[in-house]
Nucleic acid binder design. Sequence first.
DNA 1: ACCTTTGTCAAGCAATCTCTTGATTAGCAT
DNA 2: ATGCTAATCAAGAGATTGCTTGACAAAGGT
Lengths: 221, 221
Amino acid sequence: MSDRGAKDALFEGFALVGKALASGRRAELIDVLAQGERSVDELADEIGQSVANTSQHLQQLLRTGLVRTRRDGTRVYYTLADERVTRLWQLLREVAAEHVSELDELARAYLGDRNALESMTQAQLRGRLRVGDVIVIDVRPPAEYAAGHIRGARSVPLSDLARRLRDLPKDTEVVAYCRGPYCVYADDAVRTLRRRGYQASRLEDGYPEWAQAGLPVETHA
Amino acid sequence: MSDRGAKDALFEGFALVGKALASGRRAELIDVLAQGERSVDELADEIGQSVANTSQHLQQLLRTGLVRTRRDGTRVYYTLADERVTRLWQLLREVAAEHVSELDELARAYLGDRNALESMTQAQLRGRLRVGDVIVIDVRPPAEYAAGHIRGARSVPLSDLARRLRDLPKDTEVVAYCRGPYCVYADDAVRTLRRRGYQASRLEDGYPEWAQAGLPVETHA
DNA sequence: ACCTTTGTCAAGCAATCTCTTGATTAGCAT
DNA sequence: ATGCTAATCAAGAGATTGCTTGACAAAGGT
């Protein structure tokens, strides 16, 4: 049975990563950070918590090493430590979707019924991009688009969509994407577009999954 | 900001998987279960906890869906729900090794100094197996060998090693493997063998990693 | 120098988690 | 039935976690 104390301590060390992922708030933070770096108060706003509380959660992620920080003036920006953390988050989500019994219901409660919504897989979108008969729009906030987006996509933040309808063609299919499979932005965009007579559909995954799959991306542009 | 309550609930759902991995005891359980199914009291023994406490941890893993059970007479056997859970555990370990600062030290405290120990990667072992100039021994308990092992490996449980030395050749390299990169069995085996004049080395990963990589395995034999 | 913005720290309460102990249930054998 | 083994359940003590509040620190602007 060798050294029980040391073994327990080692596994407690692994469990630190589990603990980091063991709070819904921190999970939301990681989900947002998977899109790119963010300041503390943007994050606080994003997860609907006080700055103090958000900061504490971020500190915990920092202690565990899952995020890095960068200071710019009075602001502190947090990012995921590397893309392995992104993969861990994605895999954890997959495992939850597969095995946590309540998850279906929770997802439906948040996302609404997606059955009626046209959607497209990564592979399908890749094919269509090769043919060139679709327009891809990134409906996330501009900062996330700037941090990285699907190559060739246009930035049309959800909040601007109504104003920018005239820029979009009605005779070409428009594919919207956002943060990931559990993000509602693209759903909202597709619903809005369809209501106005556009041919719209939604990419099933978001930007982080696209990038993780090694598919073409670009930054800044 | 759509439905904050539903969004929080959804992410709390993801966090359930994090919570399942947020205890050193449960991490140890998952590590053992990655080798194959086990009964509750075997597991209790393995992690050095009472049966009652072990059972409670297992129940929590069960509620989260990470494990399945099978009853056989008065005994209940637990297994990981599927190989995605194995991958999640492996990835979590990698992230911890990469980012949790204390982990190096904790691993050294448990495993001792491995620098002096001859070791071999999966790729190297594969090459040597193709040439056929090594003998591979599985030093885990027999039940784990029976549940699955590297193709061609012989079962030589660590507890039997001393008694079975005469079965091993001194003029051929012996490669020992066990549960994974943080398991000490193979280390112990290599140290014992080297002390007696055998050419021994250790596979850096264990059986679950070998199987996960799609390399040749066999069961029961 | 002073103020403003942004983020962190510290204390405290409520809620949750972990392990212990002792009782209870399920299946099997006699 | 009775007894035995394996596992689960239930209650409780002690530690840990999550959020709030108010104070403090760091950087920049005026």
